[in-house]
Amino acid sequence: MGQKADNWNKFIANYGLLLAFLLAIIVFSLWSENFLRWGNVQNILIQTTSLGVCAFGLTLIMMMGEIDLSYAGLTGMIGAVMLKMIMAGYSPVSVVFVCLAIGMASGLCIAILVVGLRMSSFMVTLAAWFIYMGLERYIGHGVTHWIYKYDENILKIVQGHAGPLPVPIIIMLGLFLLCWLFQTRTRTGQYILALGENIEAVKEVGLKANLLKGGTFVAGGLIFGLTGLIETLRIGGSMVYSGRFLLIYALGAVFLGSAAFKAGKYNFPGTLLGALFFYTIINGLTLNMVKFYYIPLVQGLFLILAVAITTVKRGEIEQVQF
């Protein structure tokens, strides 16, 4: 009997969130016949893109036991830089290149401070967020510009289709597959997880733990650069502080995701599910004309649920301490 209860606990801990997600889909589709239309599904996926991409970068960094909040400011700053470049007539290729380069440079600076100088990643990246907000205002003067007035070509990156699927969806799912395979199948990906679990184990077998850590910050920065690019193109212009909403949602998606599939551990399928969950709720509630202020309320309830699930899981392992 104990064994049975144990298995049931395990099942709920690993798949509870997925069940809740499926339940939400069923409820929404019964509530509104438009919900499951292919057009609406595409809508949800496209809306999730920048959140999903950002959350993948964050997952990678949280997996190794660190945190990086810089994306909240980086996205807006990259938007400002992009508009400057587009207005000056730079080619789409060079714009994309610069966005990604800024992201990597940001990751490198964070790596130097956190790994090299042993500063707290929370404080460093919180400061980076403020700095990027300041730079955004400095570069863009806080003015909103729309891209279509200057260059329509670059917008095709997010407005086009590749086969049956819109490009943003391909970017998100492609990055998901890449991250997932990298983390679960390659040595480096596994070492990143090991860093978060027990860094001494990594050092003891002669691996260069600091280099791995620094490299992961740079990779995270690259993904955050991509987030800035996609978000700016999706909005179609540079909006003041455009990355700020990502702060809470990306953290939320990663946490929510840690309650799925491998309960209590950050993992990429979980993060994808978490990100989709947020936008599914927004979409489903909006379709049914639910007042906007109920949306965060429902999302909050789901976060509580996620925490409850991971707590159940942890309860199995933890011993009584006083």
Binding site: R187, Q190, L193, A194, E197, V202, V205, K265
Partner: peptide, 23 residues
């Protein structure tokens, strides 16, 4: 070591071969 420097979520096999995993 005196301290058990292992990665708790990895399998026994993976911990044994840590750093020298065949690809």
């Amino acid at each position: 070591h005196q301290d058990l420097n292992l990665v708790p979520v990895f399998t026994v096999a993976h911990n044994v071969c840590m750093g020298l995993e065949p690809v």
